[in-house]
């Protein structure tokens, strides 16, 4: 049941567009050779997905660290709820809010009013990045939070006892032991970003589009299912490669440790 749709997509990818759209049986590699036509979408995805993941990580790690290590238990619950609350409304509605915020009447007008000149925010890669970080932050915060929360605090005392100043303790104990959480968060965000289409569609305004947008376009607008399938298969392949790299990475970090579970 799980792989059936995938098989269908795989078979479709060797076919051709039906006369009235959809799919017509055939066997050729034309679709794959034609992938270059969607190069811009692949390029955008392959650039913005890693950058978005990194941006999420850079913001999420300090946040998760604060939540897990510094915050008092009362604040911990409060802040955790605050991190989840945005998930309670649809990403669509939240993206509209960002369209307003980054649009001409939002932040840019505020900046202009302060006399800092006119800048374009909406429909730029930056706007897409903001949307990505906003939408995916919780997915990054939670795995890191869990790994930091589970970290045996006595290890930090042990490091201090052995002469490590706080920064060294962080670099040699906290950071390495939270790497599985970092890897899980990155993978989660990265995989989902590869298939993202809503945020680029709304905040990128058709100028910054992802493979996801190309798929929507091919399947829904041009009804070229065969070519769409080929694009999808290519995307799956790219993901497969990254996931494999991820598995290698975590396995090396975990090193057969029993205190760390993989995704």
């Amino acid at each position: 049941m799980l792989v059936l749709p995938l098989i269908v997509v795989f078979v479709f990818s060797f076919g051709e567009r039906g006369p009235a759209g959809g799919y017509a049986p055939a066997f050729s590699f034309d679709n794959f050779l034609n992938l270059g036509a969607r190069w811009a979408a692949f390029k955008n995805t392959m650039v913005l997905a890693p950058i978005g993941t990194l941006a999420c990580l850079l913001i999420a790690y300090p946040l998760a660290y604060f939540l897990a290590v510094r915050a008092s238990p009362k604040w911990q619950t409060m802040l955790l709820i605050l991190v989840i609350v945005p998930f309670w409304t649809s990403i669509l509605i939240r993206s509209y809010a960002w369209i307003f915020l980054l649009g001409g009447k939002g932040l840019p007008s505020l900046i202009a009013a302060m006399g800092l000149g006119h800048i374009q925010l909406i429909n730029t890669p930056f706007a897409v990045l903001v949307g990505i970080v906003y939408g995916y932050l919780p997915l990054m915060v939670f795995p890191i939070y869990v790994s930091l929360e589970r970290l045996d605090k006595r290890l930090l005392e042990a490091a201090s006892d052995l002469g490590a100043p706080p920064m060294n303790t962080f670099l040699t104990v906290t950071l390495p032991l939270s790497m599985p959480g970092v890897a899980t968060g990155c993978m989660l965000v990265f995989i989902l970003l590869m298939g993202e289409f809503l945020i680029p569609a709304m905040l990128g305004g058709g100028k910054v589009f992802f493979v996801g947008n190309a798929l929507v376009d091919l399947f829904v607008q041009s009804r070229n299912w065969a070519f769409g399938s080929a694009v999808a298969v290519a995307l799956v392949l790219v993901m497969l490669i990254t996931v494999t790299a991820y598995m290698r990475f975590t396995r090396r970090w975990a090193g057969g440790r029993d205190d760390i579970s993989l995704m």
């Binding site: 045996d152 290890l155 042990a158 490091a159 006892d161 052995l162 100043p165 104990v173 032991l177 970090w253």
Partner: peptide, 20 residues
């Protein structure tokens, strides 16, 4: 004086060895 500046070392109750 913080622990990391004291010439004192400790054997912890559950050892607190670094698992990594």
């Amino acid at each position: 004086l913080p622990a990391y500046r004291r010439p004192i070392n400790m054997v912890f109750q559950h050892y607190a060895l670094f698992p990594h």
